[in-house]
Design a protein around this nucleic acid. Structure first.
Lengths: 224, 224
DNA sequence: GTACCGATTAAACGCTTGTTTAATAGCGGA
DNA sequence: TCCGCTATTAAACAAGCGTTTAATCGGTAC
């Protein structure tokens, strides 16, 4: 019968090595390096996964599945840095976290899927905050959570890109901690008190737009 | 005498081709592609610049010099998207803009220099806004402008990474326009009205920090 | 005239890349 | 015992990489 043979464990080891290497060195890394990490020959990598492109696709699927499984374990707090930091602290999740961050830098399907999920979580989190009375309601809640998600994830990725001393997956926890320490106070300040003294600036901008009634979430839905 | 010979114009053509190719395809692109774009042989590229690494360093210096020259022409508005969008619209600056964005994605010295400059501009701009009474004062103005610069640049870079249909330098203007259109309203909303209903959240966080008096800008100055 | 010099290139070198080919070893079933 | 299947690999392949070597032009100075 098709019982789990010896090769399945080897394939899993190759997949783990691929996620780790891709996350550390980017998707330009060679198959030979991945094979060496997994303790197998380069040919075996291709034998199991069919090629480099399909190996990356398998990594995408693997990380995405692990992400979905982790999501069931505990509710997210809706922020990108919070989610990433929590993932990085989970035993054995650091390589996957690095893989996600690498995908956000180089682009690809996993990055888009991750952002969509982050935006969805953030939307639900903010909505709950609005219902609880701690978050201000928005004229366009989805657009706001999109913007906040892009800002949170983008600033974190950019900060880590410019601070390569935190590149190793072991240093992620420290790097994210440093990033949060550096940005938390001004972020809370802006979110708690605003940035402009005159709220009328927003109204002015809105009044000069062509139409403000039916363009609620058209821009975010028209891009898929 | 050492008048500008024929080779200087050729070297400039190679440099322009390198900036364009690096910006379009990333720093992994081959020297042969750059040489073909410039209409010369690969060996001539190395003859003039000494190797791929030094060619990229020359590109960095070239873009940085052009950026400094452009800075003298008109004052910036202090925002990342505003600066990039204005650069992209200048005749012939689109390839350099792409080069900057590519550097922000892959890291390197130019990316760090660009962010430092952006933060400096943003700090001055916000300070002027505070003096004029339209921007709220901050407990740590530099940290706030750092955070806002990272959020603005990071969200833009991430958005463009996930929307590869705007990858060509010709499409930059449209892409940045789409990004601004998508994020401007919720951004103004948060900046004008805040995100939290209760400003005391910030005070609570500040009071639980070890010390809030002398840690003003230590984190941002300790990283150079 | 000829010796030199910068511009330029074709060709090759050594290396790495992703992938293929062919082979070896081990094991379960007929 | 032989067949077939899976796991696995060494070796080769073709292509691409950055770079080097050696050569060819076209001036310009002496």
């Amino acid at each position: 019968m098709s019982g789990t043979g010896e090769g399945d464990r080897t394939a899993a080891r190759i997949l783990d090595a691929a996620v780790d290497r891709f996350g550390r060195d980017g998707f330009g890394v060679g198959i030979r390096a991945i094979a060496a990490d997994a303790g197998v020959s380069p040919a075996l990598v291709i034998h199991y996964f069919g090629g480099k492109d399909r190996l990356r696709a398998a990594c995408d699927a693997h990380v995405l599945a692990a992400l979905a499984a982790e999501k069931h374990r505990s509710a997210t707090d809706g922020t990108a840095a919070g989610l990433i930091a929590r993932l990085a602290e989970i035993e054995g999740f650091a390589p996957m976290t690095a893989y996600i961050l690498r995908s956000l830098r180089e682009g690809g399907d996993l990055a888009r899927a991750f952002m969509e999920q982050l935006i969805a979580d953030s939307t639900a989190y903010l909505e709950a905050g609005v219902a609880a009375g701690v978050i201000r309601p928005s004229r366009d809640p989805v657009a706001r959570s999109r913007m906040l998600s892009y800002q949170a994830a983008g600033s974190m990725v950019l900060w880590l890109t410019l601070h390569p001393e935190y590149a190793e997956p072991d240093a992620f926890a420290r790097g994210l901690n440093a990033f949060v320490t550096e940005t938390m106070v001004p972020m809370l300040e802006v979110y708690a008190e605003g940035l402009y003294t005159n709220p009328a600036l927003l109204e002015e901008y809105l009044s000069q737009l062509p139409d403000t009634s039916s363009s609620s979430s058209s821009s975010s839905e028209a891009e898929s």
